[in-house]
Simulated scan of single mutants.
Amino acid sequence: MNKKTLHILIVLLLTLVAVSTRTYWRGSVLEWMAAGVFIVMAGIPHGSLDHKLAQHRNKNLKLLFYILGYVAAAVFFLVVWLWFPGWAFLLFLLLTAWHFGETDIASLGFHKTSPVLVFVYGTALTSWLLLQEPATLLYWTGIITHNSKVALTAVQWITGIPVLIWFGIVAVIVIFNPNVTLFTWPQRLLFLLFLYLVSKTSLLIGFILYFSGWHSISAMLHVHHAVFSRSGFKTMLKQALPYTAAAVLFLFAIAWLSDGTWLSNHALPALFVLLSILTLPHMTEMHKLYMHPNPEGKS
């Protein structure tokens, strides 16, 4: 059994457990605790090696200046959130769609990709993950964006599209992937089953299962191949640990310093915004990795 099949089976098993036990955790503190654990264990660590990608491309990189630039980009996006929450929310969704698309298209083994394919797949996938509970999404959009008209109007428009259409678009791209060597038929069917079952959990847990369980681990495997293929996975995790801790402390510091009522009154919006501010610099580094013709290193 190869690593990709094992990865799909693990996230599928976790999703089946979540679905079968949802009456016990849904809407309770357990849901929040599970989301937090998954984010700390995989979500944040998968972005903690961006400096290694940069150093791999540029051996003369000054780490201190890189970190300062990285933090500055995150702070800039936070300022955008504070001043223009509606537009920041929409920008974040577009960045998320592109980032998810790039990572999955690489994992699916496409030899030749186009920006259109990446964005269509990423948009359909992100819509599928977020539109399972339209009323809940609208509620949190209002809180996150301080009832921004532009954000609420956009979400209301997109919720009018039947959610299965988004899943259908994802399924068509997965099924008609011409590379049957890197992504076999059993893997495709199991992957689509996983994506379908996340919709039977909850908006929060479904998104976290994909984001932390599938996307983050896939991205780490890509980084491992690009930078740590000789030193091993354990070495990579050790390298990620201090920067993961620093990222967690940075998020706590921002949360403590931010006193906007829209940010501090609810845990989910705060978590959403604080994680999103790291998206811009992280997505930039991963995009540079995916510009390589084959991030997984296979032909």
Rank of each mutant, 00 (worst) to 15 (best):
M220R: 04
V116G: 12
L13P: 14
F110S: 10
N177A: 07
V223F: 06
P186I: 09
I44P: 08
W185F: 14
T201I: 06
L130P: 04
S216G: 05
A72Q: 02
G43I: 04
W32L: 15
W81F: 08
K149E: 13
F176I: 15
F252A: 12
G122S: 02
F233S: 06
L14A: 07
W157E: 09
I144T: 05
M41V: 13
F272W: 02
H51S: 09
L16V: 15
T235K: 09
L108A: 08
T123G: 09
P134Q: 01
I165E: 03
P281H: 00
V163Y: 06
Y210C: 01
A226K: 02
V17L: 07
A106P: 09
F92C: 05
L130D: 07
F167N: 02
Y210A: 03
L130F: 13
T284D: 11
L16H: 05
W185A: 10
N265I: 10
R22I: 09
T284S: 15
L241P: 15
T123S: 11
L197G: 07
I169S: 05
E296G: 15
W256S: 11
R230I: 12
P293G: 07
L6V: 15
H222F: 14
Q156K: 11
Y66L: 12
F119H: 05
W140G: 04
H146D: 14
W87H: 12
P293L: 07
L195W: 05
A154D: 01
A97Y: 03
F38L: 14
A253N: 03
P85Y: 00
L195S: 05
K298I: 14
K149H: 11
